[in-house]
């Protein structure tokens, strides 16, 4: 809901012709990722808090291995991000008149960027569920971790949409590496948090 509201607001106030042709590639990529990241964060922060509030955390601790819990939460988050992307990205393209030169590369950067978003935030979500001031803490903790990814993703979408060539897909590779590293490290560290 937050995602759609932001999208409508952005599209309403900027429209498809308000931005100069020469400035579009960069600004569109930035706008798209701002919408995606902020709407994703509001959902991602809830993934473990829900368990805590429903009181199911302890039973989950007893009945399942920590790795299994982590992977379950990760897949849930990724599914949610996927659904979000499937709504937001086409709507953004239609509403803003976003022309994409290399659709394959653009799709790849969206998928790997989403993967990185989920991978980088799941562990943080598990931590904040056991701390005070959860909402604010979640953004404070995850923004610094996500910044390299978001910068890469913005560059990547800019290149895929308006670039001269998309050869090699460098940003897709970086985002994939980021996601793989974050998932591996999180898997190793998650049991420590979970058993506290």
């Amino acid at each position: 809901m937050f995602a759609l509201t932001t999208l409508v607001a952005v599209s309403f106030s900027i429209g498809s012709f308000r931005i100069e042709e020469s400035e579009r590639p960069f600004l569109y990529a930035v706008l798209l990722w701002i919408i995606l990241v902020f709407s994703a964060l509001s959902g991602l922060s809830r993934s473990f808090v829900k368990e805590q509030e429903a009181g199911t955390m302890d039973i989950l601790k007893l009945s399942a291995r920590p790795q299994a819990v982590f992977l379950g939460k990760l897949f849930f988050n990724l599914t949610m991000l996927g659904a979000l992307g499937l709504i937001i990205v086409p709507a953004f393209i239609l509403l803003m008149g976003y022309k994409i030169k290399f659709p394959g590369c653009f799709a790849a950067i969206m998928v790997t960027g989403g993967l990185g978003l989920g991978a980088g935030t799941t562990l943080v979500a598990a931590m904040i569920a056991q701390a005070d001031a959860r909402g604010a803490l979640f953004s404070a903790l995850s923004f610094p971790l996500l910044l390299p990814l978001v910068i890469t993703a913005i560059k990547g979408s800019e290149r895929a949409a308006y670039g001269i060539s998309a050869a090699g897909w460098p940003e897709v590779k970086i985002a994939t590496a980021y996601a793989v590293i974050m998932i591996t490290v999180s898997l190793l560290l998650f049991p420590l948090i979970w058993e506290e």
């Binding site: 562990l123 943080v124 931590m127 056991q130 610094p144 980021y178 560290l189 420590l192 506290e196």
Partner: peptide, 18 residues
Amino acid sequence: RVFAGVYSILAFCTVPFL
């Protein structure tokens, strides 16, 4: 202490990207 340690390691993994 545990959380801070975990976050410190997690954050350190993003430094190579930067």
